[in-house]
Design a protein around this nucleic acid. Structure first.
Length: 434
RNA sequence: GGGCCCGUAGUGUAGCCUGGUUUAACACGUCGCCCUGUCACGGCGAAGAUCGCCAGUUCAAAUCUGGUCGGGCCCGCCA
């Protein structure tokens, strides 16, 4: 008999079906007993008045079983249907005690993050932890679909590189035969080069690596970067407007395709209207005036400032997102275009969402001479960037782009306390397994 | 790199300040018995911990001190 999935049961009322899955829970109430079966589509309840016949009290949780039975409507059951158990076959049983209960709510389990991650594959059986990555898949899928429709080409650039992108953050060195190489901290150079290659609009979904020695709830050393880069822009606002649109579509998609996951996670989606933007200079003034911050010499936003500006966006614009634009030149990498009318500031921006930076982007410098000059001004040697600079000699259009941290975006959509919960197998300062 | 904090049954916690009535407690899980409609089922009972590790102080250490190993959070930096 063909396998039926638990989610299909409401359409199979009256039929005899065969189910496969894990034993999520067994509840024996004397002579009536329930077995909750879990498969990739969800849970269903099998019922029997003969627990002895199926030796229910001998079945270990998380065993894999095959159930045969008839689907009957039952208003008291969760999905309105349940399986009248006729046959039960135990296919595979656990050979060790379970590390923790997987059939409870996250709150009830109250697991330490370390326990959760040490037993990652097992913890994902919990419908709540598992739901995080169904949502993340939808986020990534929407990113792809949306950009394809907007005329972007999906590209895959090398994660093994010869020189660092921006100088700033630490790189992981690797041995590449007889040469020294590094893991890419960003596809930045390559996506710009591909704009110049004539594709004009490219995007990439890929891991990037940062050897930063930090330990916070928002950092991991390998993260999924959602990048796009677009040519022939008139201003950096072409880039931010597109992200605004993307987020609008994303929230709609999540609403439609992940309703069950969002519900079990207790997540509330944001309303995405027109995302307000704030010049860095104005942001600083607000921090000083409304939040009593000492903003003297402030050239970047610390996490507290990011939370405060989101608080401000909520109060003044009724928005959970806010673009902070025109970051000072000192804090932005050499390829960032500055504002010719206000050259202390750049056309670089961040998107803050519920108190956390989830995107960085900018308009880039597209003029060859300007770029070389700026590399020198940063104390770097243009020769080291020849592979990147070459295409700029042959005319690259005005362009800009951004990068979204997929785990951070997932974290903020779902209200997760730690970004590691939004990474399947996170790599942090001390964790290299599983 | 700087600061703060935590390691107690399979899991999550209490006890630690103020050392001794503690046979180390509670909840979930596990095992056994009871219960026709549960869905965090319920009831009764049982097993399960040399209190991360090492050393010190003391008549006495889960409790105080030092070291060590493991972990968490915040900051710098970043997505």
């Amino acid at each position: 008999m063909e396998r039926t999935l638990t989610a299909q049961l409401p359409q199979r009322v009256g039929e005899r079906v065969r189910l496969l899955g894990w034993v999520h829970h067994i509840r024996q109430l004397g002579s009536i007993s329930f077995l909750l079966l879990r498969d990739r589509t969800g849970l269903c309840q099998a019922v029997t008045a003969e627990p002895e016949r199926f030796k229910l009290n001998q079945i270990q949780r998380e065993s894999i079983v095959e159930l045969l039975g008839r689907v009957k409507p039952e208003p008291q059951a969760r999905q309105g249907v349940e399986l009248e158990l006729e046959e039960l076959k135990i296919l595979i049983t656990p050979v060790a005690p379970l590390p923790f209960e997987v059939n409870r709510s996250r709150k009830k389990l109250n697991l330490k993050l370390d326990m959760l991650l040490d037993h990652r594959a097992f913890s994902l059986r919990n419908p709540e932890f598992g739901a995080v990555f169904r949502v993340q898949a939808e986020i990534v899928n929407t990113f792809r679909e949306f950009l394809r429709q907007a005329g972007f080409l999906e590209v895959h650039t090398s994660k093994i590189i010869a020189a660092g992108t921006e100088g700033g953050t630490a790189l992981f060195p690797i041995q590449y035969f007889e040469q020294k190489a590094y893991l890419a901290q960003s596809p930045q150079f390559y996506k710009q080069m591909l704009v110049g290659a004539g594709y004009e609009r490219v995007f990439e979904v890929g891991f990037v690596y940062r050897a930063e020695d930090h330990a916070t709830s928002r950092h991991i050393n390998e993260y999924l970067s959602l990048d796009y880069e677009m040519g022939f822009i008139q201003s950096f606002r072409d880039v931010t407007r597109l992200e605004n649109q993307l987020l609008k579509v994303m929230v709609e998609k999540l609403k439609n395709n992940c309703a069950a996951e969002l519900e079990i996670l207790g997540a509330r989606l944001p309303e995405v209207g027109e995302i307000p933007e704030l010049h860095f200079r104005d942001a600083r003034a607000i921090l000083k005036k409304d939040y009593g911050r000492n903003t003297e010499g402030m050239i970047d936003l610390d996490p507290e400032a990011e939370r405060q500006l989101c608080d401000y966006a909520g109060k003044v614009y009724n928005s959970e997102f806010i673009f902070i634009t025109h970051y000072p030149r000192k804090t932005r990498p050499f390829y960032t275009m500055w504002d010719p009318d206000d050259p202390e500031y750049t056309f670089g921006f961040d998107l803050l969402f519920r108190g956390l930076e989830v995107t960085t982007g900018s308009q880039r410098i597209h003029d060859y001479n300007m770029l070389v000059e700026n590399i020198r001004r940063f104390g770097l040697q243009p020769e080291n960037y020849d592979f990147y600079l070459e295409i700029f000699k042959y005319a690259v259009p005005p362009h800009g782009g951004l990068a979204i941290g997929a785990e951070r975006l997932t974290q903020q959509f779902l209200g997760l306390a730690n970004v590691r919960e939004a990474s399947l197998f996170p790599r942090d300062r001390f964790r290299l397994t599983p």
